[in-house]
Design a protein around this nucleic acid. Sequence first.
DNA 1: CATGATATGTTATACTATATCAAGCGTGAT
DNA 2: ATCACGCTTGATATAGTATAACATATCATG
Lengths: 162, 162
Amino acid sequence: MTSAGFHPHDHHRCIADAMAAAEAHCAANRLHLTPVRRRTLEILLSEHRALGAYDILSRLNADGFGGQPPVAYRALDFLTTHGFVHKIEALNAYVACANPGSDGASHAPAFLICRACGKVEEAEADPAKGPLARAAREAGFAIERAVVEAQGLCPACHDGAS
Amino acid sequence: MTSAGFHPHDHHRCIADAMAAAEAHCAANRLHLTPVRRRTLEILLSEHRALGAYDILSRLNADGFGGQPPVAYRALDFLTTHGFVHKIEALNAYVACANPGSDGASHAPAFLICRACGKVEEAEADPAKGPLARAAREAGFAIERAVVEAQGLCPACHDGAS
DNA sequence: CATGATATGTTATACTATATCAAGCGTGAT
DNA sequence: ATCACGCTTGATATAGTATAACATATCATG
């Protein structure tokens, strides 16, 4: 199941479901979804886009949370460690996970990033099945983590442009 | 054909071949492989590892080239634009291309990055054939560029460790 | 209540990258 | 020849991303 980033959907519901899943996962695993962490996740869920740490920080400020970089980075560290948020390496930015708590830390997300509207869709493109896994096998390389980020144009921007 | 990063090889030859290929490609395309650019490429070729821009910069300094960041970044920009060097997004670092000039800009490299020794091997894991391409097709997404970076342990580090 | 683990506040700093303007240096056109 | 132009480099400043280190607060538990 992929995120609905590129298509119209009940976004309020989309946020509520993700927050509920995060809360359930935290409750089940003795994790503290504190106010800063919760708000950070809400901020990221509010858009299907990747936000920079300093974007997030300034929104946290607006909500009365501490104003220094470590505040944002620590919240992001918690959220990424537990699989609620992913970092988009190609953008040095962060995006909410589409299926949080699905299995904690070990799913293998791939991302489709629209360079026009900035929306990010998360796909479960398990690299274990692709040419990457074959190349690794041939090289005797043991993959622990894979960064897979496709950049291009989403359906809407592709049709609208050129 | 993959790079020989993880296996013993005639490294002097490996460097010489890559430099020759770069020179040929530049000559054929009216590109200037100036001293800074050439030296930058040599630095990256000297190791099968990804180096940060400031690492490269300090090595350039040692060789008498200008000492400001733009010097390194401009050389890297030239080299990446023309396919002689790739950026490893997950590390914010740069690595020499294993098969430069193969087709200029449009090959689809994937990387195997050893977290222990730092070596990087470039594989031609064409994403067009993998699950990523299928996910994109289903989503109506037009991929223009794909970042594929696997992190883990190379054969040597995998055997040596635990 | 004491204790230890977890989380947050705060300051400072490190690391990565680019904008901008000035100067040098070839190549080719007139 | 020299002028004009494009490309490359020099140099200063600043923007953007991330973490180290230490102090304080909070809370569950013994």
